[in-house]
Structures are given as C-alpha cells and as structure tokens.
Design a binder for these strands. Structure first.
Length: 462
RNA sequence: GCGGUUGUAGCUCAGUAGGUUAGAGCACCAGAUUGUGGUUCUGGGGGUCGCCGGUUCGAGCCCGGUCAUCCGCCCCA
C-alpha cells in the first residue's frame, strides 16, 4: 500500500478552510464588480513560448513545464541533451501559468478587436511556481488581479486605492499601510545621483532599507557601481522619515533639472487629488492608510508609473497586496503602446494574516442550519416534504440519510456545527408536529413546521 | 542554488547511559445511556521509531549515506 502525500508546496483546502477563503474571496469579488471590473478566466495551461522570456531568466527557471505526450524523444539528437535549458522547449510545448498578467496580456492581444476599451477585468485563479516553499510561500497559490488597460487616466490609480481600502475594511483588517510611490520619481532620483541608467540596481538596493538598514543599503549600492558622491546624494533620502509634504518639498528641491522626476511628483499629486475628490475625506492620506514611501521600489522591471504595496502591521507576514502601472503590457505579443494599471491581492497571505489576528467571524464555518433526524421509514416519509419546505423557505436543511442511532445523528450535527436539529419520532408524528432542538442551549420545543421555520430564521438574524 | 532544523500512533510530542513487551495528551471506536450531541466515567483499536547500510551480545538512541520536512539567504505574492 502506498502512503498518500501531497506534492511539495501544495495544499488541500478542507471545508472549514474553504468557508474562510470564500469569505475573503467573496468580498474581493464584490468590490471588483462594484467598480465595474468583469470576470475573466484563462486556462491553467499555456503554451510555453507564451510564458518564456517574460519573467527574466530566473523566472523562466521557475516555470512548471508539462512533458509532451507520446514519444517525446522522437526527433531528438544526442546534442540536444548537452544543455537542459535548451532541451526543455523541445520536449515541453506547454506549461502551467506563472502569473495572471501574462495570460491577460495574451488575451487582450488575441481579442483586441472585440473588447471595449478601457478594458477592466478581474481574475481569481491559481498560479504555479517551481520555487522553494517557505512560510507564506507556496508552489500553488491564488492571485486576485484587477487591471484596467487602454487608458492612462490617474482615476484608475485613485480607484485602486479605494478598492484596497474597501476590501480590507470589509474583512475587518484595519491596521495596515498602503505604500505608494512612482517609478518616475525613482528614475528622477537615479538621474539626480548621476546614474540615469541604473534605476533597476538602485531600486533593488533601496528596496531593502526596511530589512537591512541605511548603511547596508549604501554598501550594496557601492558594490553595484555607485560612486561615493552618488551614495552621499542618496544618504539623506534614506534618512527621510517625514510627512508627505516634507518629502514632496525635498523632491521639489532636487528635481529642478529632472523632467521625469517632476512628472512623477505631478502624478502622485493628481492621484491624491482625485482620491480626495472622490471621497471628500477630511484627510485622504490618513483616512485611507496611505504612506508616500520613496524607498518603495517593487523589484518588477515593467512598472513605469504608480506603484503600490500593502503591508499588514503587527504580523509576521507583511505584504498582502501590490501593483502598479505598466506602459507596454502587450508589447511582447505585437500590440505596442497599451498602458495599463493593476494590482493583486495575495489571498493565501491575506488568509494567514487574518488567522494570525483572529479576524474571521465565527459563522463563516456555518453551512447547514437545520438537520432532520431520521427515525425510520414512516418518520422519514413524513419529514421529506418538510425538508423541502424548509429549503424553499431559504433555510439550509439536510436530513440524515439513514435511520442510525440517534446518538450518532446528534454527534453528526454537533460535529458539523449545525445549530438546530429537528426530531420527528412516533410522538411527533402522531401530532404532526416537530421537536426543534437548539444545539447551543440544549432546549427543545414542540412546534408546527411554520413555527419552527420562524424560530430558525429569528436565530439567524440575531 | 547555498546554510541550518527536525523525522517516534491520525495530530502534538516524551523516551533516562545503548538493555525486557516503545509511552502520554488529544483524536478515533465501543459501552455506561434502544428518543438526545457537547461534560463525565469505563474499556478498546492503532507503531517496519522516515528509508538503506554499519558498529554492538543487543540500536528509537551511536556512525555513514539517503529521502522528506520546516526555517533562513537569493528571489518573489
């Protein structure tokens, strides 16, 4: 006999877990739809050539490839076996999707003539990465993306701020920071320190400020070829710990000669002004948990404008959402010049954070409200129409499918956390009434079907 | 890809210096209670001590290898 086991980095979602995951997903879906986003699903399997080359060399290594069916060795020559990187596209035509963004770009390109632009879609599906699993890190995990393509209006950025706040508020997660920045500001900084071509390496180093501290960041910059004068120019930036206004004032000073940097500032200002106009908030930045963070870089190279990242405070896991604007999403598929902005919730991490903070309401686990017990043939025949009647009244109802010992049936109800049990035995049958037992208090009442339904509904309300 | 941790019952773990028949709690099953769960009491089932080899009269324990696991680093959600 073989011992069953899961592949590394994958998980089962048991019913209790699913109830909680759905609690999160329902709120995310509701919010996305409320803002006019439409659902999209794409296949788990994509053609390998659609995925490769989009995530950098390291990313390509992490793509799960699917071995061709049949005799995949046919037509190969010994030289093909010299380099495994060159072999894989010859024996694997397909692969599991690595994220939702690239399949989305493929979709937009393929359907461009039929779509209404600006096109707003959301997509909630699993993705796969051949990564080494760790805490908060899986090989199969869900992403919840929402993107708008075909407009560069900053209204989209403002709405992303609103959506993130709405979802987290509904989930009861109040202690978080929504970090914002703009890639153009980072480009401006790179210009300012005299390394306009080194935005990428600069960001990778700056991004680690939280983790390793300012001195180590400067060391890393030096290693990456930034000279002493450049480092000295960055130093005051790493020490900045002021308000939005003071950071902006600092940038006003250093960006006198950087058109790009000033553009980034203008975008941030306009995004905030639109959010303010939307919400009429007394203090938009504070009320919507915003933090203008000049060190926020988000490693991804394809962001060109706004960037976002959400950190849950007071927990070990941290980052639960992120996104930004990109200018050339579909370029790789021959459709240049399409600007888009999007973001993503990490459901699995959101789940872990909510569990750590005990934010799940108790009733998410609840499903069946009433269990009809089963005493035997005559009682069952009497019960079946009533079960149907309960269901038609909108009450989640089930009947125990066989006349097992009552103890066993009660245990079943208890284990499934069913709040009410209906007992129909000889005496109830004779009176055409139901014994309704409240499993929490243990109290039971002899009632008509109508009265029993009313009681169940009343309990549901309060 | 690199560094470390831990593998004993379904789960969490104990296991003395290398010594008889490997334990506990929880979970599970049955009974106390043939119309009542959650509490209580009584009884019961359940183990190739990750795997392979070595040392030894004797290995859960020591040694070598191997596989798995979790945690860091890199990178990411």
């Amino acid at each position: 006999m073989q011992k069953p086991a899961l592949p590394k980095g994958t998980r089962d979602f048991a019913p209790e877990v699913m109830a909680r995951r759905n609690f999160i997903l329902d709120h995310i879906r509701d919010t996305f739809e409320k803002f006019g986003f439409q659902a999209l699903e794409t296949p788990a399997v994509e053609r390998l050539d659609v995925l490769t080359g989009k995530y950098g060399e390291e990313g390509d290594q992490l793509i799960f490839k699917i071995l061709d069916s049949g005799d995949y060795l046919a037509g190969l020559s010994p030289s093909d076996f010299q380099d495994y990187k060159k072999l894989s596209p010859k024996i694997a035509e397909k692969a599991l999707r690595y994220d939702l963004t690239v399949p989305f770009a493929r979709f937009v390109t393929m359907h461009r003539s039929g779509l209404a632009f600006p096109f707003k879609r959301y997509q909630i599906q699993p993705v796969w990465r051949g990564d080494r699993p760790q805490k908060g890190r899986y090989r199969e995990f869900y992403q919840c993306d929402a993107d708008v393509v075909g407009t560069d209006s900053l209204l989209c950025e403002a709405e992303i701020i609103l959506m993130i706040n709405e979802v987290l508020d509904k989930l009861g997660l109040r202690n978080f920071t929504l970090k914002i920045n703009n890639r153009k500001i980072l480009s401006g900084l790179a210009e300012f320190v005299g390394h306009p071509d080194q935005v990428g390496p600069m960001c990778v180093a700056i991004d680690k400020l939280d983790k390793i501290g300012p001195e180590k960041v400067l060391e890393e910059l030096a290693e990456r070829g930034f000279g002493e004068s450049a480092c000295e120019k960055i130093r005051p930036l790493l020490a900045l710990d002021g308000t939005y206004e003071s950071k902006m004032a600092f940038l006003d000073e250093i960006f006198t000669h950087s058109e790009t940097g000033r553009q980034g500032q203008a975008e941030i200002r306009q995004m905030l002004a639109l959010g303010q106009a939307y919400t009429q908030a007394r203090d938009f930045i504070q009320d919507y948990h915003l933090d203008f963070d000049l060190t926020l870089a988000r490693g991804l190279t394809y962001y060109t404008g706004a960037i976002f990242e959400v950190k849950a405070l007071g927990v070990s896991i941290g980052s639960i959402s992120g996104g930004g604007r990109y200018d050339n999403l579909t370029g790789a598929f021959g459709m240049p010049g399409v600007s888009g902005v999007g973001f993503s919730f990490g459901v699995d991490r959101l789940y872990d954070v909510m569990e750590e903070l005990q934010l799940f309401p108790a009733e998410t686990a609840l499903s069946t409200q009433v269990l009809f017990s089963n005493f035997g043939e005559a009682e069952q025949a009497f019960s079946l129409p009533l079960v149907r009647q309960f269901r038609q009244a909108g009450i989640n109802t089930e009947i125990y499918p066989e006349a097992a010992k009552l103890k066993k049936q009660m245990q079943y109800a208890h284990q499934k956390n069913i709040p009410f049990v209906v007992l129909v035995g000889e005496t109830e049958l004779a009176q055409e009434k139901l014994m309704l037992k409240d499993m929490r208090t243990g109290a039971q009442l002899l009632l008509s079907a109508q009265e029993a339904q009313a009681r169940v509904r009343a309990a549901e309300m309060g």
